[in-house]
Each structure stands twice: as C-alpha cells, then as structure tokens.
Write a protein that binds this DNA or RNA. Structure first.
Lengths: 148, 148
DNA sequence: TTGCTAGTTGCAATTCAGTCGCATCTGTAT
DNA sequence: ATACAGATGCGACTGAATTGCAACTAGCAA
C-alpha cells in the first residue's frame, strides 16, 4: 500500500519544483528536516537540525522558509498552549486536520482526528459562509495518566 | 431577565474576594477594563485603558494580572491567527466557549457558538480520557463579503 | 487603631522570538 | 556562458513579555 502523497519523502521539494519555486541548498536542508521530523519542531530546533545537513543555513533563512511554507499551506503553525514559552511549533500539513491536546501537567502532546471536527468545519463554512483556509484547535488539560 | 453571572459587572472582582485574592487599586482598574471591554484586547490596549482609570498601573502589573486571570480560568488567550503580529489578545471567559474566525483579507473577527463544538469536546474527553481545562479553536479564511 | 507581614507593585534592565536592510551570492531560464 | 530575479548571511533591530529587587500596601490580628 503506497503512503499518501503528502507523507512521501521529497514531497515538499517536489511541490516546490512543480510551482517553480527556486530550490536552494539551504531550502533543501530545511525541507528535508520538515519532511523527516517526527513532530512539532520550533524554529530553533529546525535551525539546529538543518545546520547538521548544511552548516550554512542561517536563522533568518529558516524563518523566511517557514513563512513561505505557511503561505503555500504546506505546514501548520501551533503554539501548543504555550507550555514552553511563546515560541511557535511547526508540522507538515497532512491529509487530515487534527486536534492537538497538551497535558498541562506532564507536557505530553496528543493528536486526535475526528469526523466531528470535520463536521464542525463544514458547519462553519455553511452557516457562516466562511471559506476556511487554515484552522487550529488546541486543547489544554490533563491526560488520562495525569488525571488520576 | 438577569444577565448570566459571568456577564455581571463586578463579577471578576467578586471572584477575587471570594477566593481571598488580594484586591489592589491597580487590579481594580485592570479588572474593570476586562469586564467592560467589548472584545479582544491586547496587553498594550489593556494597559492604556487601565491607565485612564488609574494612571499608576504599570505594564508589568498588567502582565502579572493577566497571568493570574489565566491561571484562574477567568480569561481566554487568543492570537487571532497573528493577523497583527505576535501579540496575544484576551477576553473574559463567558459561559459558552466559542470559535474565532479571522478574515485573512479584511481582518474582521467573527465568533461562532456551536453544539457541534461542544460535542467535539465531549468526544475528546470521552475517547481520549482527556480532562479539558481550556480549548481554543481559531480559524483563518475569507468571510462572506471577501469570498466574492 | 496600630503594627505586622505576605503579597503586590514600579522601574529598569533583560530575555527571547522573530524581522529587516543591504551587500553578496546563486538557481534557473535564455 | 550569461544575466538577473530572487535568495542568502550577517548584524542590527523590534516588540512582546519577563524578571530582580527595593519600596509599598491590603488585610489581618491584637
């Protein structure tokens, strides 16, 4: 069974060339990190990992590339309930939107996919005649283990 | 018909005294602004308005009071899709959670209350055994007028 | 009323994420 | 190979938010 397209390695780079967006050494490194990251990198972590692939990568290039990826709708920006300061976290946008839950006690981040969430977005589009481009549902609280 | 408790003027101050939280001149000014604000103040706006009631109010007191209000679950923190920079916005937590929609073109902020949203949170609590303390759904896109 | 003290405040310095201007460099179309 | 639009690195900068500390004060107890 093939992976969904958006999970294929190299998908971000492919997107760039399809759209005629210039591919540079630095972007290659940054995209590779985004593609292979397990989850939720902040800009500083992304910079550190990208530097390992290409020591030339600069902080401002990371931010500029993140802005580009956001504008292309290829990544989502999260703040994970500001559990660790004001910085933002990034993850590849996959096929299906999901909810993020952050445990206020242990700091664990959980994800949850739900038809009800999709239905809610449909309701907003219909009832409010609002065309959704990006949505973010973040929940803070206590996970099963920490609730006891 | 009486207003719901959380919309009664003085409710925040009442909460403070009930909990034995010390009431100061400065806090009184800040709480009054939060209570009477129509919507979505950022910290700088809140400071400006509070200074009009009590010129003594300092920026750090505003931030410290906001932190206190957040911890008490009396206000919600939003970023409104970063339409205007990285600052945060605050609003009193009312009886019913609502969704925030931000138009990426005209900047209008809309709110939407939905049973489906409540159902979704119920689903998260049940299926993930996650005890929700705070939740935030922010949507970016195009409003009816700007979609045309 | 007075005095006590834990909690609060103002201030200035600081942190920290993110942005910008500009000279230089490079990917890509020709 | 060449040209040039677009991308980069660097350091300075911005703006939101935090902090350390001395001075102040709300609220309580006597």
């Amino acid at each position: 069974m093939p992976l969904p397209q958006t999970e294929m390695p190299g998908r971000l780079q492919a997107y760039f060339s399809e759209r005629g967006i210039r591919m540079t050494q630095q972007r290659r490194a940054i995209l590779r990190v985004m593609e292979t990251a397990s989850k939720h990198l902040d800009a500083a972590q992304l910079l550190r990992k990208a530097k390992k692939l290409d020591p030339q990568v600069d902080r401002s290039t990371v931010y500029r590339t993140l802005r580009l990826l956001k504008r292309q709708g290829l990544i989502d920006e999260l703040d994970l309930m500001h559990l660790n300061g004001e910085k933002h976290y990034y993850e590849r946008k996959l096929n299906r939107d999901h909810i993020h839950m952050a445990c206020l006690r242990c700091g664990k981040i959980m994800e949850f996919v739900s038809d009800v969430f999709d239905a809610l977005k449909g309701e907003v589009e219909r009832d409010c005649r609002f065309h959704i481009v990006v949505s973010r549902l973040e929940i803070g609280g206590y996970c099963a283990a920490c609730s006891k």
